[in-house]
């Protein structure tokens, strides 16, 4: 690795060595190196400081730096493990690791639960589910009557809240996902399997030969 990697770590706070990240995630060292090329693009798109700010995340997702989205905000907050308002390279790779096709399904189910637990109470509450449905309808320019929205939320909530205590806990969520596995389809990114093949252009700039 030599001076290039140490030069990189001086310039970019939160940078971690590919070997360390590869040891803790489903990625290989060269895949982490390839992810670093992607990370460099994203983290310098608006503010050239080597850190992904929310506007840069929005730009990458929507091609629009100002587009707000409840779910993208939640993803950003979960990626921002240190809660310092930016996504660092180590956080980026570790969080993306959950989306790897080889990542344990249990990790994907747990991540989705934290995603939907908007107020981080350790439960998914009915009001949160309704808030997310309304956010989706708004995002998709779909208009539904209040009754239909309530019916959709009620039916899903009753199905999931098997203990009937008015909130969905992690156990109930695991059970619910096992009945409806498509609910976590977003939690797997096929791109991440052999990312160096999917994006050869990334490999050109990556250092490590596997």
């Amino acid at each position: 690795m030599g001076c290039a990697s140490s030069k990189r770590s001086k310039r970019t706070p939160g940078y971690e060595e590919p070997t360390v990240l590869a040891a803790e995630t489903p990625f290989t060292v060269s895949e982490v190196e390839a992810l670093y090329e992607l990370y460099k693009k994203l983290s310098n798109a608006i503010i050239a400081d080597g850190l992904i700010h929310k506007e840069e995340f929005q730009l990458a997702l929507f091609r629009n730096r100002n587009r707000r989205n409840l779910f993208a905000d939640r993803i950003f907050d979960l990626f921002d493990v240190k809660r310092n308002g930016v996504i660092e390279f180590g956080e980026f790779v570790r969080s993306l690791g959950v989306f790897h096709p080889n990542a344990p399904v249990a990790d994907k189910i747990a991540f989705a639960f934290r995603l939907y637990d908007l107020r981080q109470t350790g439960f998914i509450e009915r009001e949160e589910l309704k808030e997310m449905v309304l956010a989706l309808l708004h995002e998709s320019d779909l208009v539904l009557s209040e009754d239909v929205v309530e019916t959709i939320v009620d039916k899903t909530f009753t199905d999931a809240d098997t203990k009937g205590d008015g909130k969905i806990d992690t156990e109930e969520w695991k059970e619910f996902v096992s009945k409806h596995p498509s609910l976590i389809k977003n939690m797997t990114l096929p791109y991440l399997k052999d990312i160096t093949l999917a994006f050869p252009s990334f490999v050109v700039a990556s250092e490590v030969e596997e």
Binding site: Y116, E139, L183
Partner: peptide, 26 residues
């Protein structure tokens, strides 16, 4: 058209904000 019997989480999972594959598209 959204059927009233639809699973709310299924509906939510269609959000573009949850589709990270666009991070990887050129």
């Amino acid at each position: 058209v959204v059927p009233a019997t639809m699973n709310a989480f299924e509906l939510i999972s269609t959000s573009q904000g949850l589709n990270l594959s666009s991070l990887f598209e050129k």
